[in-house]
Amino acid sequence: MSINTKKVIKNAYRISKVRGQTALRIRVPGGHIETRFFALIDEIASRFGNGTAHITTRQGLELPGIDFERIPEINKMIRPLLESLGLDREITDDGYPSAGTRNICACIGNRVCTFANDDTTAMARELERAVYPNDLHFKIAVSGCPNDCIKAALNDFGILCTVEPVYDASRCIACSACVETCAKAVTGALSLRDFSVLRNRELCIGCGECIRKCPTGATRRSPEKSYRLVIMGRTGRKNPRMAETFLKWADRESIVKIIQNGYAFAQRHIDRSLEKEHVGYIVDRTGFATFKDEVLQDVRLGEKVIVAKHIQWGGYRYTSDAGFR
């Protein structure tokens, strides 16, 4: 059997532990899929796979137990799935054009969730169109609010949808519902002085809890949406770590542009002697300052935006498992 594994992997098929068998990796941007595709997925799994589907850690679907020779046939069948991505490119019968950039994850977002500050599915799909196909191994996730249920903090680029509260003292009854919820469940950014609410903008993370809690509509949503961008979080075998905040109160256009610039940054600096190098390790080599300069190129950040001056990532290193010594 002759299989070009690199080509197969790039085509979104896995080299599995069972010789001769692969698994198809279906992209589901934002983890939201039209159920009309279930029949197609069922047909592929039943006819060519082992009749099962794995819901992947990145919200995709993986159909195992497929013989390699079935790939061309399956690629024709999945054309509607590719078309549904809405990419700005011609869709062929050749299956997925790349698999490096991982499925873009999102929580259920404001189509359903009361906490969410934006439509995360729509944002994930917009980002998919902006960055896919691409062979670079990037992980991107969108969370509807700073609760970060999707764990954007473990991605190379994590987007937390935020909202800046707008306060109208003339509607405030000084019930303290916002102050208390912020103090107990968030950052304590709010305080009551002379029966009016003061907000510490540095402490405020834009979660929107104060807006949800207000019984009179004294605290409302700002007309513009805003986003916090957290970067270079990861798991892995060397130095797993949470992402750190790069930008706060950024607009959507800037976020998309910065992520696209992130790809260009990685292309410029990647160590090609390695099989693959994750973007976080590239930033570790170049330093945050270089990364920052390059990704902010041609980005017109609004006046509200705050940019991190320095970032010192933490996490742990397996080479210094101090607890065992």
Partner: peptide
């Protein structure tokens, strides 16, 4: 419009 407590929701006032 857009002034509900939840995002992308409106309110009649």
């Amino acid at each position: 419009s857009d002034k509900g407590a939840f995002s992308d929701t409106d309110r009649i006032t």
